[in-house]
Computed example of a mutant assay.
Amino acid sequence: MNAPPRPHEAGPVTVGVDLGGTGTRIVVLDADGTVRRETSSPTAAGISPTRAAAELADSIAAAAAGFALRAVGIGASGPVDRLGVIRNPDTLPAYSDIPITDIISDRLGIGCVIDNDAVTAAIGEHNNGAGRGSDTLLVVTLGTGIGVALFCHGHAARAADGSHPEAGHLAVNGPSAPCYCGLPTCWEQLASRTALDRLTGNRSAELAIKARTGDPDAAAVFDVYGRRVGAGLGTLLTLLKPDRVVIGGGAARYLDLAETGMRRSLRRAPGFTAVLELRAAELGNLAGAIGAAILARRTA
C-alpha cells in the first residue's frame, strides 16, 4: 500500500473558512477536492474586528502549514455586501464592517475571496456532495440561523445589487418568534438548528435517540420541527421550483425524523403540491468550508 503524500507533495491547496455564528471551520482542500486537513473552533466574539481578522489569518496559516497555499475562500453568515464586507453585527460582530479579505490577503500574501455561507455550502454540495447533477439546486442550511441558496445552471442567484438574498428571514405562520430582522415571527427563529435546540430544551440528540426507538412523545417534537421547516420551505418551492432540495447544517442529522412533518406542511391542493426531491447534505458541517475552498480555487 502506498503511503499518503506528505503535505509538500500534495501540490497547491486552497483553504476554505466557514465563518458561522457560533463556530468557525477551516479546511485545506487539494486540487483533487480531497480535504487534507480540517480544524474547528468557536467563532471569535468580544474582541475588535481588526484583531479577529488577524487571528483568523493566523489560524488559516496554521491549518495550511506544510502545504503550498494558493488562495483562501470565506463563507460568512450574511449579509455580505457586493464589496465583500460582512454586514452582520447581530451574528458576526467581530467580523463585521471591515475589509476582511484585504486584511487576510495582506497578512498571508495570497488572494482571498468571500461570499455568503449559504452560497459556499451550495457550491460545496453542487460540486462534491448531494447536489451533483442538479440544474436548479436549492440548498437550505439549518444552523445557528437559516441559510438559503439557489444554484441555477452553475451560478448562485443574486439580488439586483449583487448581494445574496437573506431567504432565512421569511415571514411564516407559527408561534411568536421575534427576530432581529424585525419580523414578529421569522422562519429562522422557528426552524434553525438553534430553534430546534430551544424546542427540545437543548436535548435534541437525546430526544432523537428516543424518537428512533419508538418514543411517540419524542417523535412528536421532531414532527413539530419538521412542520416549521416546511412553513418557509413551501414558499421557496412555490417561487423557485428547484429540481432538488438539499438540507444541510447541524439539524440535517434529524431529517429522517422531521421529514414526515415537513412534507405534511408542504401538502397543498392537487397541482400546487411540489414534487420534492429531498436529500440530506453529504458534506455535513464541512459543506460551507469546502465550497469556500472551491470558490477560492476558481476566483482568487
Rank of each mutant, 00 (worst) to 15 (best):
Gly23Pro: 00
Asn128Cys: 13
Asp106Trp: 03
Val13His: 09
Gly66Glu: 05
Ser59His: 12
Asn127Lys: 08
Asn2Glu: 07
Gly16Thr: 04
Arg6Trp: 09
Arg25Met: 06
Thr50Leu: 15
Gly111Arg: 04
Ser41Arg: 15
Thr120Cys: 00
Cys112Pro: 00
Leu92Trp: 12
Gly21His: 03
Glu55Asn: 13
Val17Ile: 12
Thr14Asp: 03
Ala94Phe: 13
Ser41Ile: 02
Ile60Pro: 06
Leu19Ser: 04
Ile110Arg: 08
Asn2Gln: 10
Ile98Phe: 07
Asp102Tyr: 02
Gly124Trp: 00
Cys112Val: 10
Gly109Met: 08
Pro89Leu: 13
Ile60His: 07
Asp81Arg: 01
Pro7Gln: 01
Asp32Gln: 13
Asn127Pro: 07
Ala44Trp: 09
Asp81Asn: 15
Arg132Asn: 07
Arg37Pro: 01
Glu55Phe: 00
Gly131Glu: 03
Asp90Thr: 14
Ala45Cys: 14
Tyr95Ile: 07
Ala10Val: 10
Pro99Lys: 07
Glu9Trp: 07
Thr50Ile: 15
Ala54Ile: 01
Pro42Met: 08
Ile100Tyr: 09
Ser59Thr: 11
Pro79Lys: 08
Gly111Ala: 00
Val27Cys: 09
Asp97Val: 15
Asp81Trp: 06
Ala130Pro: 10
Arg87Gly: 08
Leu92Val: 11
Gly73Ala: 00
Asp58Met: 05
Gly23Glu: 12
Pro4His: 03
Gly21Ala: 11
Ile103Pro: 01
Arg107Pro: 06
Ile26Cys: 09
Asp58Ser: 11
Asp30Ile: 02
Tyr95Thr: 11
Val28Phe: 01
Leu69Gln: 10
Ser105Phe: 01
Ala45Trp: 06
Asn127Thr: 15
Pro42Arg: 04
Ser40Trp: 02
Thr120Asp: 01
Ala62Gly: 06
Thr120Glu: 06
Thr34Asp: 12
Pro42Tyr: 01
Asn116Asp: 07
Gly78Thr: 07
Ala122Asn: 09
Ile74Gln: 08
Leu19Lys: 01
Asp115Pro: 08
Gly111Asp: 05
